[in-house]
């Protein structure tokens, strides 16, 4: 699996560390009424069979956080964007 880092170019996936699902949004509040949102954020996943947006960090390179659009069925990488450019 190759990941095309926007800063370093195409590199082997073992240079990168995955964090996971990039579609989860951290809840703003921490009141008791926000617990459902936290439960969803921490535990629940769409786990799609197909395209999946996920955070990877180029730990063996420039250390930038990236959002990788990747297919979980074929491992094909469709696109890589620096997470900072997405405001993520």
């Amino acid at each position: 699996m190759l990941i095309d880092c926007p800063y370093c170019g195409e590199r082997l996936s073992e240079e990168f560390t995955i964090l996971g699902d990039a579609t989860k949004q951290r809840p703003a509040g921490s009141a008791a009424s926000d617990m459902d949102a936290w439960y969803d954020y921490v535990f629940l996943r769409d786990n799609p069979k197909g395209r999946h947006r996920e955070y990877w960090q180029h730990t063996g390179g420039c250390r930038a956080w990236l959002v990788v659009d990747r297919d979980t069925l074929t491992h094909q990488v469709y696109g890589v964007t620096a997470a900072r450019d997405l405001g993520a």
């Binding site: 073992e14 996920e54 979980t72 491992h75």
Partner: peptide, 13 residues
């Protein structure tokens, strides 16, 4: 392997 996958095959690393 550590990343989401339904591929039933892994990678070389």
């Amino acid at each position: 392997d550590g990343y989401n996958s339904y591929a039933r095959r892994g990678n070389m690393p």
